[in-house]
Design a protein around this nucleic acid. Structure first.
Length: 302
DNA sequence: CCATGTCAAGGTCAC
DNA sequence: GTGACCTTGACATGG
């Protein structure tokens, strides 16, 4: 269950609201040109570098890179050799992360569906995964830099949909398999469903604590977390997890705008003795992450 | 210059 | 069967 010699890390996804740049700049497909991609990637990488510097100074050693870093990278329209053009910048960012013990991850969005009934959708999804893994490879990051997806749709029959996921996972190129992990969602696939999938193909299960609050099979959160952690090997580094809480007054399943510090304290207390990395999926990003880190330090967990 | 509608991609659910 | 919703920041357009 991960390498016990590492300290836990806390981080936030994709966007920093303090430093005044974005690493997710993109444009409309209709206005696609090689010049636009190059300009966007150039600006995104320089901002990403600044964000990692900020995170390092703040002690936030876990960060999710935006899928928009290279806009349209997996789209057929894109012929741009971004790996060649930004070779140096990508390596520098990777070195910055590695040299400082930072963990990097990515999360392709809801359109990435390995288990679709439509082979074309699966094919496009695999191209999307190839892009994500190629970006992390170009940064020279180790296999602990993971790419997380959800199990996909149910299509009226979860068992066969799960079997399709397993079958397709097994056929993936090793460059993808070594990074891919699967995360429980809030409506369709519980931790228990994913443990079954993992049992059939070995994919690590990423525990999302908030989704697990929304959808579970009655077990204690710490038990579900422990079971998910057991699917990670030492080579994968510490298990990754997502954390959030319900936005008060918001629709069921809506992520909080700001950290509910009492809720987070309970979570840290209930998971005592377990070491895992925590990605805070909270709207105000680094602001809540800084508070969470301070609390985890006071509680002696980090 | 600001406000508002829109953006590559799929699936589910309410109606 | 159709359309709203998911989730989301940032682009693009129109006033």
């Amino acid at each position: 269950m991960g390498n016990p010699n590492e300290a836990m890390r806390i981080g936030y996804p994709c966007v920093n609201r303090s430093i005044g740049c974005t690493a997710s700049s993109t444009f409309r497909l209709a206005s696609y040109s090689e010049e636009r991609v190059e300009a966007a990637v150039s600006s995104n990488l320089s901002c990403l570098s600044r964000m990692l510097g900020y995170n390092l100074r703040a002690g936030l050693l876990f960060f999710r890179i935006s899928s928009d870093t290279v806009p349209f990278a997996s789209h057929p329209v894109c012929r741009f050799d971004w790996r060649g053009r930004f070779r140096k910048e990508l390596k520098e960012i990777g070195a910055l992360a590695k040299d400082n013990g930072m963990r990097i991850s990515m999360h392709p969005d809801q359109f990435t569906l390995l288990n679709s009934q439509d082979e074309g959708i699966t094919e496009r999804s695999i191209r999307e995964l190839e892009y994500h893994c190629a970006l992390l490879d170009a940064m020279n990051l180790p296999r602990s830099a993971k790419v997380q997806i959800h199990a996909g749709g149910v299509y009226g029959d979860k068992e066969s949909a799960s079997a399709r996921f397993v079958e397709r996972y097994k056929k993936l190129p090793s460059a993808i398999r070594k990074r891919l992990v699967v995360e429980n969602d809030e409506r369709l696939y519980s931790v228990k469903d994913l443990l079954a999938i993992s049992g059939s193909c070995g994919i690590p299960v990423l525990f999302d604590s908030f989704h697990n609050e929304c959808l579970n099979t009655g077990e204690k959160a710490a038990d579900a977390l422990r079971a998910a952690m057991d699917t990670w090997s030492d080579a994968d580094s510490l298990p990754m997890t997502d954390y959030s809480s319900q936005e008060p007054g918001g629709r069921f399943g809506k992520h909080a705008e700001h950290i509910d510090i009492a809720h987070f304290r309970r979570y840290i207390r209930r998971t005592e003795g377990l070491d895992f990395d925590i990605m805070l999926e909270i709207k105000d990003k680094e602001r809540s992450a800084i508070k969470a880190l301070a609390l985890a330090r006071r509680m002696g967990r980090i």
